[in-house]
Amino acid sequence: MPAVVVNNIVKTYGKKKETTALHGISFETAPGELFGLIGPDGAGKTSLFRILTTLLLADSGTASVNGLEVVKDYKAIRRKVGYMPGRFSLYPDLSVEENLNFFATIFNTSIEENYDLIRDIYVQIEPFKKRRAGKLSGGMKQKLALSCALIHRPDVLFLDEPTTGVDAVSRKEFWEMLKGLKAQGISILVSTPYMDEAALCDRVALLQNGKILSVNTPAGIVDDFAWPLLAVKATSMLPLLHHIEKFEGAVNAYPFGEFHHVVMKPGSTAVQLQQFLEHKGHAGLIVKEAKPGIEDCFIAYMKN
């Protein structure tokens, strides 16, 4: 049985339904899978999460979590899922321990019962268990929120942008924790605006303006990238970009770190581009082959 099934979900906002957040999207995630929803702000990630966690009603389409229908079986779903919203939403005036205890109790369980599941995460914040949740650092809050979402041993875990605004070290740690949870058999649906995190998921869905661009494994998405990709660098980068755009053999060009990435038409070569740019008088020119990443794929999908 799939962990999450989304079937042609449409969600609009506003009195006249003038803003469409989700344009009839569909996908499925397998049990025990770490599934990533990758997309920029406003792609519709949070709306989808709120529909799946029974907080929001979709305009049309169906969705189910662990075989339970989100509209009809919402009560059963609430017992089975863990949800960590994008914003820290625990009680800031209760201590770490009290927050955890509270959420354990309202799920009719106790910290002791499911301690093994959260142990790896909770040991890191246990030294501060008497501290009020509002006084924790950002990374600590994240861990506490994850512990609270896990305390009732959910079958499916929904994490809405868990790493936004968290430093690089904590982000890495967080993904390690997710891998640990996956090993315990929990299906995870995680959203992130960071393309580099997509590679850490089993499968990802690329989401843009409420539409799914692609659903695939990270490797599969990269493999689908059909065009040759070049990385180009010179001393003056802005005129360089303008000149590349004039090159007939290029499909698309965009800044990418210290290089510009250039998507080439099949048949055009790096040498042709190099000659074209040398002709324009660029100094310090480097043109090399580049391996496409998820971000390149994302941009290519958006362009089409």
């Binding site: 907080l55 609430r78 919203p85 914003r87 625990l90 799920f107 009719n108 609270c148």
Partner: peptide
């Protein structure tokens, strides 16, 4: 305002 009501709403309370 602090979003805790959503957290409660996804529970069986």
């Amino acid at each position: 305002e602090i979003g805790t009501i959503e957290q409660i709403n996804v529970t069986p309370v």
